[in-house]
Design a protein around this nucleic acid. Sequence first.
DNA 1: ATAAAAATTTAGACGACCCTAAATTTTTAG
DNA 2: CTAAAAATTTAGGGTCGTCTAAATTTTTAT
Lengths: 218, 218
Amino acid sequence: MHSFTEENYLKTIYYLANRRQGEVSTNALAEMTATKAASVTDMLRKLAEKQLIHYKKYQGVRLTDEGERLALQIIRRHRLWEVFLVQKLGFGWDEVHEIAEELEHIRSEELVTRLDTYLGYPQFDPHGDPIPTPAGQMPETGYRKLSEVEAGEGVCLMAVLEHSTEFLKHLDHSQLTLGCQVTVNEINTFDKSVLVQIESGRSVFISHEVARNLLVKN
Amino acid sequence: MHSFTEENYLKTIYYLANRRQGEVSTNALAEMTATKAASVTDMLRKLAEKQLIHYKKYQGVRLTDEGERLALQIIRRHRLWEVFLVQKLGFGWDEVHEIAEELEHIRSEELVTRLDTYLGYPQFDPHGDPIPTPAGQMPETGYRKLSEVEAGEGVCLMAVLEHSTEFLKHLDHSQLTLGCQVTVNEINTFDKSVLVQIESGRSVFISHEVARNLLVKN
DNA sequence: ATAAAAATTTAGACGACCCTAAATTTTTAG
DNA sequence: CTAAAAATTTAGGGTCGTCTAAATTTTTAT
Ligand SMILES: [Mn+2]
Ligand SMILES: [Mn+2]
Ligand SMILES: [Mn+2]
Ligand SMILES: [Mn+2]
């Protein structure tokens, strides 16, 4: 069996490996897990021992197949619980991350299977992130950032990159909802902010900072 | 904050204190928590330090008001999650205890409140145990054991004392369901077994061992 | 190319929770 | 009322995950 802590490290390694391609550094992990580099090194030794990561001293770290399988399993649980919290219990999408951080560690295959069925086999969590399959595949999305869309294009808001309460509340406030159709009317060259028109016809001003954290598809 | 382990000790102390009246012994706790007496002593010192129990060396242990409040909170969560697992996810009543043992430690007041609402404010868990109120009161039930019912009496099956999978499966197999009306037709004097008639008209033989673990009301 | 800076690992330690073996206190029985 | 038995605590130690400080390796900049 694996401890909560081990599971969290695996999830974090997966996350960082998919942000910047290639090996994950000790310092990046320390920052992400809010621990010190020395503690990370200890844990990396243990995970390598258990064959969950490839680890060469000073060279960064990469998940093994088994490590990735486990990481995807935790991510699947996390996202399914988030769907439950929002759709069944009525939490806001800005309130569920911390709770799902705990629920994802509950040890029961059967529980996850039944939860998935109960929720109607959702494909995406409340933040638009794809839910890994029971077999452990992360679905491809092919989204791009709103900040990379050309003026005149019409796209659909699919997911958020940033998950902080402040960011999500800001989107709610701007009436930017996932699934929402938006047309890019104007791109300001000096600050890269964009003016988009949403379904209701209303125009919404979006800073580059926000546009960089919104994922869209055509 | 309190650790999972501390919460489990509090819950166990509550349980044992309400079975045999009075102080709870170190050995009883060791048996119940599947640890050794020496480990229990360590933890008792810590819980006393935190003012969650009254503890005098060699004299057994008793919950403080704050300790009891916490214990009832954990029990409330445990039982609400069991209701969820059975009523919403379709688990059998014999499958939910272990999972609820983990879910009960998820730290979020809001989660419990919303879960309670979602479940329709249930009064009892799938085993007939009363769910403590949000304010931290354990409802009185006034149940008696089926083994103490006189011949000729008609009673309603309300709860089980034993929670093991084997026992619960045995009840399923005998078509003994909570809420089920039963009439005691015969009490065998030599082995205290009883013959009851259930709603369907069928007669069911119940050993003393089973009857001692069934709670009923009139 | 090399010295300074940055990243990483090692050394040594601590708190939480658990263990076994030994000492101590309480209970029980003769 | 005492001696044996039972219950409990203490002593000493282990693992897990964390930390700070020091040593080592890699990267960066002159
Ligand atoms: Mn999340
Ligand atoms: Mn999410
Ligand atoms: Mn239970
Ligand atoms: Mn129960």
